[in-house]
Design a protein around this nucleic acid. Sequence first.
DNA 1: ACGTGGTGTCAAGAATATTTGTCATTGCCG
DNA 2: CGGCAATGACAAATATTCTTGACACCACGT
Lengths: 74, 74
Amino acid sequence: MVPAKVVIRNQIRALRFESGEMTQQDLADRIGVSRQTVNAIEGGKYSPSLEVAFRVAQVFDKPLEAVFQCLMTE
Amino acid sequence: MVPAKVVIRNQIRALRFESGEMTQQDLADRIGVSRQTVNAIEGGKYSPSLEVAFRVAQVFDKPLEAVFQCLMTE
DNA sequence: ACGTGGTGTCAAGAATATTTGTCATTGCCG
DNA sequence: CGGCAATGACAAATATTCTTGACACCACGT
């Protein structure tokens, strides 16, 4: 019984544009991480820590699940 | 403008007992992490990755925010 | 008294997330 | 055309999370 593999998707890019052309740098500043970190997370290179995830959700004033979705791969 | 400090609290212990005496080991197996990891997260030694957080929530069949809460310290 | 299961904890190392610095590309505006 | 802001990308260094193995402690049943 192999533990389920999980993929995490996010809506950051869409939310940035819904929030008035917010740039990656703007978002990074508001979250408190570097621009490269926002870029990597937004591009799905890796998924963020729970802290960072919560802060992204707070910036967009959304529940965490509206920003990040957990997909089971089997 | 220092970026807000964040503390993450969790309801894992309560949820384990609501779920019929589930042990840390049981939970660890269902999440796919080690018992020590569950112990550390439950005890707030550090907060989990987003993947692990999602899987904990799935085990308890709760939204992520019902398991982990993000508290602003100022 | 003895064994056992559940838990707390530690240390070393592997794996992953994050930072900083740097460079290339693209689109836009003067 | 020339400059600039936004983005994508990479590498090296640091930080954090997670694993494995070990040991102690306590509560419980026999």
